[in-house]
Design a protein around this nucleic acid. Structure first.
Length: 270
DNA sequence: AGACCTTTGAAGCTG
DNA sequence: CAGCTTCAAAGGTCT
């Protein structure tokens, strides 16, 4: 049943014209770090950027500080960030601003900066961003150190180019194919990503670079290793097995080899 | 409740 | 340093 749903979704998408490079094998595209790419027509990516998007005018550094965004360094790259992301991104109804959504008002902020930097990278230890704000006043004095440690909000990794692309395009793909399961959606998005032109991909690489930069400034001491091992894996062996086709895939089937694409996937489309 | 699936890219880890 | 592993997002599915 589900398999058929996915199949029909791919059939539907077969007729979706790729941006460019249709029918060509995906070519590895090294990250592009041009500072002056055209920045038109990029809809909402990450709420971090949405905050600076139309219809609001491009915020000045003063505007940012008024929103209590801590910017310890005034780097030229950040100004590029503003010009890059302002006034060109559309709005998607399901998105919320990182700076206004209650889940972002965690009050934890950057260590050493009690003014609280509400940033979407900060989430409660539950993993998912919750609707209710993280209320540190709920902590009791009797809580053990370990408990307090466990309840410390997690600073998430900044999104890479593909993640930003997924965030933007997911709703569009879902609307087109009525699929909702992310595993299938992500397969489609992965193929579309490869179908993007170099210029189109460059926009996302640039946004991702800016996001990393901002993330570095917001959380100077943060390292990706901070989140290592926080997700419990059932076991490395099993995880490996799942990656090599030993377990059920997103289509509810048991693929013989993970490297073998699903037979109903037309390689010349998407 | 939380891992899994699935994708790419960044970054950490390991030998 | 090359290659492997983990984690970012997402939501349905499964344990």
């Amino acid at each position: 049943m589900y398999k058929e749903t996915v199949y029909s979704a791919f059939n539907l998408l077969m007729h979706y014209p790729p941006h460019s490079g249709a029918g060509q094998p995906p070519q590895p595209q090294p990250p592009l770090h041009k500072a002056s790419q055209p920045h038109h027509g990029v809809p909402q990516l990450s709420p971090l950027y949405e905050h600076f998007s139309s219809p609001h005018p491009t915020p000045t550094p003063t505007d940012i500080s008024q929103k209590q965004v801590h910017r310890p360094l005034q780097t030229p790259d950040l100004s590029g960030f503003y010009s890059l992301t302002s006034g060109s991104m559309g709005q998607l109804p399901h998105t919320v601003s990182w700076f206004t959504h209650p889940s972002l008002m965690l009050g934890s902020g950057v260590p050493g900066h009690p003014a609280a930097i509400p940033h979407p990278a900060i989430v409660p230890p539950s993993g998912k961003q919750e609707l209710q704000p993280y209320d540190r006043t709920l902590k009791t004095q009797t809580e053990s150190k370990a408990e307090k440690e466990a309840k410390k909000p997690t600073i998430k990794k900044p999104l890479n180019a593909f993640m930003l692309y997924m965030k933007e395009m997911r709703a569009k793909v879902i609307a087109e194919c009525t699929l909702k399961e992310s595993a299938a959606i992500n397969q489609i998005l992965g193929r579309r990503w490869h179908a993007l032109s170099r210029e189109e991909q460059a926009k996302y690489y640039e946004l991702a670079r800016k996001e990393r930069q901002l993330h570095m400034q917001l959380y100077p001491g943060w390292s990706a290793r901070d989140n290592y091992g926080k997700k419990k894996r059932r076991s490395r062996e099993k995880h490996q097995e799942s990656n090599t086709g030993g377990k059920r895939n997103a289509f509810g089937t048991y693929p013989e080899k993970a490297a073998t694409p699903a037979p109903f996937l037309p390689m010349t489309v998407l």
